[in-house]
Design a binder for these strands. Structure first.
Lengths: 201, 201
DNA sequence: GTCTATACGAAGATAGAC
DNA sequence: GTCTATCTTCGTATAGAC
């Protein structure tokens, strides 16, 4: 872990070209401050990218940069969800929680979910929100199918996955607000208990 | 219901003075667009308030206006939570969900939680986030004590209330993103089921 | 309490040179 | 691909008159 900002979604970004670095650091900043509060200048500064080539790489301007950043964050998290090696549904929930737990603590509770942040920006940045919507749907399906594999009834899995995604997103926001992991820990414990009982039923 | 913006937190704001109208409409706009994307000019336009007296009423500028708005929204929702007349813990959860359900639908899914929005703005507006933190803690305690009254074990109530608040906050964000009540409906159904089983135990 | 005018800076975006 | 202007719009905030 090189710098402070390597705490969230920026791991290994140094090795890449300016364009990709901009996208990665944009995702990081959106997770911290939201879409509206993240300026192109901020992204350039964070990624040590050249000022002069933004509109070369991103002719669509800020909207394009934010859009790609939300998609990047979505894939980044989806990858992590895909590689979890838990063996029960309850463990899977705990592991998903740990992914966020780590990012919160490593960023000193500054980094939240760039995807939800994108979704909340619908009025000013509808295209960004559209991508966020896709990603959230994908995440929920990923969680649901995982629950099914671990023994949860198919009819229940969708609604339970919805609860898990919503509760974790909300808990991450509470953790940012309170600068504490406690909300997430409570939520994960409750979700794991519930998931276990549903999977066993 | 007079105007479109009367759909969220702005009911009866016409009858009040300019200062209070500004606070109410600031809360409304923060719930829609977040703190950073809400400008003083937007608030003035929405509340039909006089341009010249903002810094007379709010010498602390935008920060003060946003701070008071988040507090107002917090009290507004807390009042509603206080007047719910449900008789079981599960019904209480459903009623809380209905409060948000209505605001989402009436605003065409544009209005989300101003308090969480304030909490997410900590880096740029720490004072606003501090108020948001207070409010969220208050809400969680309100829910927890209600659960206890309805038969939930005291040791469990805090953690369950945390889940309920986090899940609803997250669900509201998902509803805004997807322009649909489905996430909230799923979450409320799951939470009601869980709460019922915990209250009965 | 409310107005107008204005200062100041930040941010998105474009043009044209290298 | 990258740089340096530059334009424009917007947003916060202040000053001073009414």
């Amino acid at each position: 872990m090189a710098s402070h900002s390597a705490a969230s979604v920026t791991q290994g970004s140094e090795a890449r070209g300016p364009r990709e670095r901009m996208v990665i650091h944009a995702a990081d900043l959106i997770g911290r401050d939201g879409v509206a509060a993240t300026s192109i200048g901020d992204v350039i500064a964070a990624s040590s990218a050249p000022r002069g080539s933004i509109y070369h790489h991103f002719p669509g301007g800020k909207t394009q940069l934010m859009t790609e950043a939300v998609r990047y964050a979505g894939d980044f998290i989806a990858d992590r969800l895909g590689t979890l090696r838990s063996h029960t549904a309850a463990d899977a929930v705990t592991d998903i929680g740990d992914v966020w737990r780590r990012m919160l603590i490593n960023s000193d509770y500054q980094f939240g979910c760039p995807v939800l942040a994108g979704g909340l920006a619908r009025r000013t940045e509808p295209q960004v929100a559209d991508v966020a919507e896709e990603v959230l749907t994908q995440w929920t399906k990923l969680v649901a199918s995982r629950l099914v594999v671990e023994g949860v009834d198919v009819d229940r899995a969708g609604s339970l996955a919805n609860l898990i995604v919503a509760a974790i997103e909300g808990a991450v926001g509470l953790c940012q607000t309170q600068r504490s992991v406690e909300p997430l820990d409570n939520v994960i414990r409750e979700l794991a208990l519930l998931t276990q009982s549903v999977a066993t039923a």
